[in-house]
Amino acid sequence: MKVSLTVNERPVEADLPANTLLSDLIRGHLGLTGTHVGCDTSQCGACTVHLNGRAVKSCTILAAQAQGAAVTTIEGIGAPGNLHPMQAAFQDAHGLQCGFCTPGMIMAAIDLVQNAGPLDETKVREGLEGNLCRCTGYHNIVKAVLSAAERL
């Protein structure tokens, strides 16, 4: 089936099997490999992207459900030399180690900062409950998000 949407402000049209997941469209068809897939039960959050400005797990929705939507991936928010404040905060606070959960974590954190109201440590921890990290123990991720919340 045909799907049209924008990904990182670029129009995308694709003819895909109806059961194609949004994460497969992003990784497989568009080659945007910054979005990772870490599980098969929508538990880990590594595949988190923005759909019309809100964080979604891209393995949990079909590409077809993104018809007409604006999708933003980690590649769409900043680049080396022009980092998004959340990206910069993750580096500054050492909020990542292996980097695999990081794109999803950053996308979830941006949504949290933009939409969850005033944040404190507890709220950040609760807000990132849907994103697993096995390296950092979350300590520095929480620090990064609180620091970015001040910058954003």
Binding site: L32, T33, G34, T35, H36, V37, T73, I74, E75, G78, A79, P80, L83, Q87, A88, F90, Q91, D92, H94, L96, C98, G99, F100, T102, P103, I106
Partner: peptide, 17 residues
């Protein structure tokens, strides 16, 4: 600060998959 972070935070890491 870690130099490898730049590629990881911008989605430019290159994992096997």
């Amino acid at each position: 600060k870690r130099r490898e972070d730049i590629r990881f935070i911008t989605g430019q890491g290159r994992y096997t998959d």
